[in-house]
Design a protein around this nucleic acid. Structure first.
Length: 971
RNA sequence: GCGCGCUUAGCUCAGUGGUAGAGCAUUACCUUCACACGGUAGGGGUCGCAGGUUCGAAACCUGCAGCGCGCACCA
């Protein structure tokens, strides 16, 4: 540090050291290393995403953990990568292409061309967030960076699909699913969020067909689905209506239908709540989950009134057909009014499911999808319940447990193009001959291959083995497979799941299966898998599974996972299940759930609110370290973080303080004009030296403890307090007494203490502030004193400071009594400064103090007091007797006098003392009240009694001192 | 509806039965030779409400209120 600027300038420092770390390959994990392993996998951000404050929080924590682990001597793997994020990415690219006017709909391009565009987009924008993470200082092993659609990763996904299928856990079925009409895909239950919506409850009436003139009133929130009604239901125990069960009503819509087409039965079903609405429920099996179940129970027909895109179908009738579902609601109401079926509407708030991503109301829709029955649920649930895997904060364990206890099958297929395509091929055959093919045909060849490589243990339909599945129409329902894949015509369909193990390049079998299948007219299932169906494999798929790689052996299970609680079910729970199912072991030992970043007002960050600052702007303005520190200092465990730029400013100020504290040391060394050698001479240590060393020891202990408990904000506060309030405010100021003196040996020793403290402090700071600490580590020359691999090249591998042991304390004479002794000295200083202030003496005015000490005061302590009090002179006089007009404070360290003649009017000082006296009197009364209570003195533990007695004595002593001071003032 | 969490200074939060704390904000004074991205000293709280346990409650128990979250859901 030859030229030290007055303020820390992060920009050039940050890029310099990040490049240095990359060049040194310091982030690269060595699977062959003998060190104990520490590993953490990044929650992969969306490949096309940009860095948000949420990422900053999350990745700073991970970086702190990783850097701390390196300093603890661990072999650290922090494995980075990105997620293909099916819906999000497809939507982004789709929108961009439309905006450029290149397409009106993705069908204009077709699947293959569209996917090319997505890959182009990925190549162009996919690196952005990774580069941004580097700006933040993330110490990821970039040589192991993965993407969820890397070729090897895709093979993992295929293998998992086929394995789970073989285990009977994946099945295809026609079910009620959550349908997003905007993207036109199914969604899992987790992707649907319920939102209260202000709507109306519409009442309309229907005539009972068998009893003309008798009408029933039905309440519904969705009149537009009336054309899809295939029954009305009442509770069989409801005396008002039970006698009507078995009769029919005339459905009012579509209005143009003839009478016989309007007849729908009145059925009895326990599901109906007779207190809601009128106690009569219209049953729309095609568009409501509960109604679908009623429909199944009563074998009701299903009429689809709404199309996949959310428009009304032909079956909705002439009036509604083609309309958007919400427009249709209004039109349906109008129509009911027109035909005289209308009764009334009431305002009503109900919960409506919204697509989490597209934020549009989802539509329950009957469709054929792939489902997964979750594997390894019991182990996964137990490991958290038993505390073998720890959640921080632990209340999330309860949320997890509840979900695991009510787990539903997972709809894993999506009607998208961007994603892992389902590894299933099928072809419909009209007859057996066509299926078997003639001698020498592709068909025949396929049969031979598949029979050879199929799994004999698999339950079969026609003896074809595992990977060749023939689902005859007749057999399909028995297997719970409803008419897959289509139900047109006779014949049968062959279904082939091509798992990773039979793809030639992996199995060593030289047979291009997929090509042959396609040559034989097979087509691949058009759907892709839910993005999370690849993400849930992340901890081991990124490490080379299914191969038993060295990385996997060394670093799986991972140590910590850091993520947001919003994806506890999407990702965390599923990773745990996948870990047990495929690795036989938990994927991570500890999970840390961050809070959610909100703005100052507590609102979620969002683009539309414009309350989401760009972290890169903040880095440019304040520095990456400042951003990290500011965020960490305001991120208590388990609570949301209210973000305010002031926090970052505080981080910037803190870095500057650190910078200048080091600058101060350099300036003292420079002016000392002699070579510094770092050895501390124990005999020369002052009480201040011992005090700061003991404070350092405390800070090391507290910090180590906080980090072990994942209390990052507490850790940041400890650092802040130690460095600013203890080191800078007291110790540095106290050392000026030495540096302004003439004793070179003392100066050298003080510098040695400073170097000791700073070199430890920089290490304690490094996980939080990687850039500035590296800069100072080298600039201050501390690197030179360390062995090559342990701080000599980079602070990254400098050993994490350990609390002082007995030998160390003994050698340097670090007895805890110095803490108390020095605290008392500093207390005197604060009281003395207070005296100045109360006397209205300007900060820059030097005045004379007289100290009447309680014990011997060394020349060093006297010099320290003089400097800290900003005194012109400090006279030590054990026999001092104050004259009239002298302000005084009385502390354990001694009595301090400030002759006020000509400085202030005595009345102000008198008022101050009187106020103080009142305070002491009140305290004395409080303690005396307790001590005079026999119930207290008899029942309280002796130790507490002693404390109270001592406290009383202290207050009384202070009172006496104030009385004396008042007397002194008056002379 | 079920479950979880929160309520302490203007703000954000620590505080597991014994003298109410921190940071920020705020007020006053100070450009003193590391730092004004700074220094020094202050002011500010019936610890959500009501009961109970206890010699003693911010803390433990019960009830209530308000806020937030998760799950389920009646059309």
């Amino acid at each position: 540090m030859p030229e030290i600027s007055k303020a820390y300038e992060p920009q050039s420092v940050e890029s310099k050291w990040y490049q240095f770390w990359l060049d040194g390959k310091f982030f690269v994990a060595d699977a062959a290393s003998k060190k104990p392993a520490y590993s953490i996998v990044i929650p992969p951000p969306n490949v096309t995403g940009v860095l948000t404050l949420g990422h900053v929080l999350n990745n700073t924590i991970q970086d702190i953990l990783a850097r701390k682990a390196r300093m603890d001597g661990k072999e650290v793997l922090w494995l980075p990568g990105t997620d293909h994020a099916g819906i999000a990415t497809q939507t982004v690219v789709d929108r961009a292409l439309k905006k450029e006017g290149k397409i009106r709909h993705r069908d204009d391009l077709g699947r293959e061309k569209f996917l090319e565009k997505v890959w182009e987009w990925k190549e162009k924008h996919g690196g952005i967030i990774i580069e941004q993470l580097k700006r933040l200082g993330a110490s990821c092993d970039w040589s192991r960076q993965r993407f969820t659609m890397d070729e090897a990763y895709s093979r993992c996904v295929q293998k998992v699909f086929v394995d789970l299928y073989k285990k009977g856990l994946i099945y295809r079925g026609k079910r009620m699913v959550n349908w997003d009409p905007s993207v036109q895909t199914s969604l899992s239950d987790e992707e649907v969020i319920m939102k209260p919506q202000n709507g109306a409850l519409y009442y309309f009436k229907v005539e009972v067909a068998e009893i003309p003139g008798t009408f029933l009133t039905i309440a519904t929130t969705r009149p537009e689905t009336i054309p899809g009604d295939t029954a009305v239901a009442v509770n069989p125990k409801d005396p008002r209506y039970s006698q009507l069960i078995g009769k029919h009503v005339l459905r009012p819509l579509p209005a143009e239908y003839p009478r016989e087409q309007k007849l729908i039965p009145i059925i009895g079903d326990e599901h109906v709540d007779f207190e809601f609405g009128t106690g009569i429920l219209k049953v729309t099996p095609a568009h409501d989950k509960a109604d679908f179940e009623i429909g199944q129970r009563h074998k009701l027909p299903i009429i689809e009134a709404i199309n996949a895109d959310g428009s009304m179908s032909d079956a909705a009738g002439a009036d509604l057909k083609g309309l958007d579902r919400f427009k249709a609601r209004k039109v349906a109401v109008e129509k009911l009014k027109e035909i005289g079926a209308w009764e009334k509407e009431e305002p009503y708030t109900n919960n409506v499911g919204f697509s989490e991503r597209a934020d549009v109301p989802i539509e329950p829709r009957l469709s054929e999808q792939w489902f997964l029955k979750y594997p390894s649920t019991e182990k996964s649930r137990a490991v958290v319940a038993k505390g073998e895997m720890t959640f921080h904060p632990d209340r999330w364990a309860k949320v997890y447990d509840h979900w695991m206890g009510n787990i539903q099958d997972w709809c894993i297929s999506r009607q998208l193009w961007w994603g892992h395509r389902i590894p299933v091929w099928n072809k419909h055959f009209t007859n057996e001959e066509e299926y078997w093919g003639g001698e020498g045909t592709v068909q025949d060849e396929l049969q031979d291959f598949l029979t050879l490589h199929s799994d004999p243990d698999l339950p079969t339909h026609n003896g074809d083995g595992m990977l060749v599945k023939r689902f005859l129409w007749d057999n399909a329902p028995e297997k719970g497979l409803l008419n897959y894949p289509d139900k047109n015509g006779g014949g049968f369909t062959v279904f082939i799941g091509a798992g990773a193990e039979i793809i030639p390049s992996l199995s060593g079998v030289d047979y291009p299966l997929v090509e042959k299948l396609e040559e034989a007219g097979f087509t691949q299932d058009p759907d892709v898998l839910d993005t999370w169906f690849s993400s849930w494999l992340w901890p081991f798929a990124t490490m080379g599974w299914p191969s038993e790689t060295e990385t996997l052996k060394r670093f799986y299970p991972t140590t910590d996972l850091v993520t947001g609680p919003d994806i506890i079910f999407f990702w965390v729970a599923r990773m745990i299940m996948a870990g047990y199912e495929f690795m036989g072991e938990m994927p991570f030992r500890n999970v840390y759930f961050t809070g959610i970043i909100r703005d100052k007002q507590g609102r979620k960050m969002s683009k539309s609110l414009g309350n989401s600052p760009d972290p890169l702007d903040l880095i440019a303005k304040f520095g990456a370290d400042a951003l990290r520190f500011g965020v960490m200092r305001s991120a208590p465990l388990g609570q949301d973080i209210l973000f305010d730029e002031q926090h970052v400013e505080l981080g910037r100020n803190f870095c500057n303080k650190l910078w200048n504290a080091c600058r101060f040391r350099q300036m003292q060394a420079g002016s000392a004009g002699f070579p510094i050698q770092g050895e501390i001479v124990p005999q020369m240590l002052t009480t201040d030296d011992k005090w700061i060393l003991l404070k350092l020891d405390h800070a090391i202990q507290e910090l180590t403890q906080s980090l072990a408990e994942y209390k990052f904000s507490e850790a940041a506060q400890t650092l802040y307090r130690f460095f600013w309030s203890e080191y800078c405010d007291w110790y540095v100021e106290a050392t000026k007494a030495v540096f302004q003196g003439t004793d070179d040996a003392r100066k050298a020793n003080t510098l040695a203490v400073i170097d000791f403290v700073l070199s430890h402090t920089l290490r304690l700071f490094h996980p939080f502030l990687p850039f500035i600490t590296e800069e100072l580590w080298h600039g201050m020359g501390y690197a030179e004193d360390m062995p090559e691999g342990q701080g000599g090249r980079t602070i990254m591998f400098a050993p994490w400071p350990k609390p002082f042991d007995e030998d160390f304390r003994g050698h340097y004479g670090l007895d805890d009594c110095y803490l108390e002794m020095t605290d008392l000295k500093y207390e005197l200083v604060t009281l003395g400064r207070n005296l100045r202030r109360e006397a209205n003496i300007a900060s820059n005015k030097k005045v004379k103090f007289i100290l009447k000490p309680a014990a011997h005061v060394t020349p060093h302590d006297a010099a320290v007091l003089k400097i800290l009090l900003n005194a012109e002179a400090l006279e030590i006089d054990p026999n001092y007797s104050p004259k009239k007009g002298t302000a005084a404070i009385n502390a354990s360290y001694g009595d301090l006098y400030l002759p006020l003649e000509g400085l202030v009017d005595v009345a102000t000082e008198k008022a101050r003392l009187t106020k103080e006296l009142e305070k002491y009197n009140a305290e004395i009364q409080k303690v005396e009240g307790k001590l005079n209570n026999p119930a207290f003195t008899q029942k309280v533990p002796p130790q507490v009694l002693e404390e109270h007695k001592q406290r009383l004595a202290d207050w009384q002593a202070k009172k006496q001192h104030v009385l004396a001071a008042l007397a002194a003032l008056e002379g």
